[in-house]
Design a protein around this nucleic acid. Structure first.
Lengths: 201, 201
DNA sequence: AAGTTTTCTTGACAACTGTCAAGAACGGGC
DNA sequence: GCCCGTTCTTGACAGTTGTCAAGAAAACTT
């Protein structure tokens, strides 16, 4: 029974985070299906058996890991929303951040899409994925409403629709990035500059 | 050496199609990673060993199968494009077809998204996926340009952008469909009615 | 009807998977 | 020093995987 209350409670949690960080490396490189626990542990300071000391099974590790990552993610554009003072400034900053995160964190993003897709096949993933997806939608909606506000307009689409469309563009860019590389990021930037104004009237 | 030229050339191809059809059943139900060749063969009139008589390996079977399915797919909206005489008629027919295919072929669609995502991890899938994706984009573009034409307008976004956005909405609806069921299709229909007019001006 | 080629099944292979139990190593309190 | 709970490693388990070879069955040719 690992999670006893003796000693610092977070010592245990800190190891979980450490495991999660290693797991994300491997998961982002190989994807959910091909990333075995031995491979994950191999890219960590620990041996493969330790996983079951800190997590009940592989699924719990994966869910914990993606939650651990996405927790930092959902505030990615908050500074942009806060600091922009004109519609165009917001668009440019938003588009730049989108491109930046594809460049810097592509493995994490493709892992996210992998897990989200797997959740259509595997029930155990569904709840966590649904929850994170809702947080991402809210994150995008903050950008949209702020844009509309700065432009003196109001959104022309619902929150889910705005998220769906922008997520589609982002995913498309991510896909192209893994094959084509850098140039697609300019295309993404251009697309966002064209599309965002359509989402408020 | 199976593919010899003796006898009807298509006898061989016909079996491949039959295998593909069975494979699609299992792949659509379990996803790419969890659908084993034994399971695939189990849902077919054949035994597991026959796969390697008609295909070099699992990847070739999967690629052949998804190509086999998508070949029928990329013309799905052509009748809509051809027969619609007003912008609103086109939108309604298009939205209805989108909802219909989610209802009727959800397993095939989630398989498609599964494979497209896996192509970011597995090089062997990349080429086939890229090719199919381009065909899907072209299919959507025919809808968009026809809509603009009927409305006496011209598209306000590029072909990739239009595909990315609509694909995002579709994927979102598919995801919600597997958890929520029927009601999400109305939402999709509404979204398309809102969004399509934004794509021409 | 016999022979030949195509088609399919069976059974095996090596590798890999998640899981778990037994015990070693480590840590701090006496 | 010793003890005891926590932490980690090692090695094994049962099951699954893609692949392939040997040969049975079927189809076709002559």
């Amino acid at each position: 029974m690992p999670p006893v209350k003796t000693r610092p409670v977070d010592k245990f949690d800190r190891r979980r985070d450490e495991l999660a960080e290693s797991a994300l490396l491997t998961l982002g490189e190989m994807g959910y299906a091909r990333a075995s626990l031995r491979e994950i542990a191999g890219n960590s300071p620990f041996s493969h058996g330790v996983v079951h000391y800190y997590f009940q099974d592989k699924l719990e590790l994966v869910i914990y890991s993606v939650r651990y990552y996405k927790a930092r993610c959902v505030t990615r554009y908050d500074a942009v929303v806060r600091d922009s003072t004109t519609p165009d400034e917001l668009i440019d900053a938003f588009a730049a951040k989108l491109a930046e995160t594809i460049r810097d964190e592509a493995p994490m993003h493709r892992l996210w899409y992998d897990l989200r897709t797997q959740s259509m096949f595997e029930d155990g993933l569904r709840d966590a994925i649904t929850e994170i997806d809702a947080a991402l939608e809210a994150m995008i909606w903050r950008v949209i409403t702020r844009y509309a506000e700065l432009a003196g307009l109001s959104p022309s689409v619902t929150s889910p629709a705005a998220y769906g469309m922008l997520d589609g563009l982002f995913q498309q860019a991510l896909l192209a990035w893994t094959t084509t590389g850098e140039p697609v990021l300019d295309a993404l930037t251009t697309q966002v500059r064209t599309v965002l104004p359509l989402l408020a009237r």
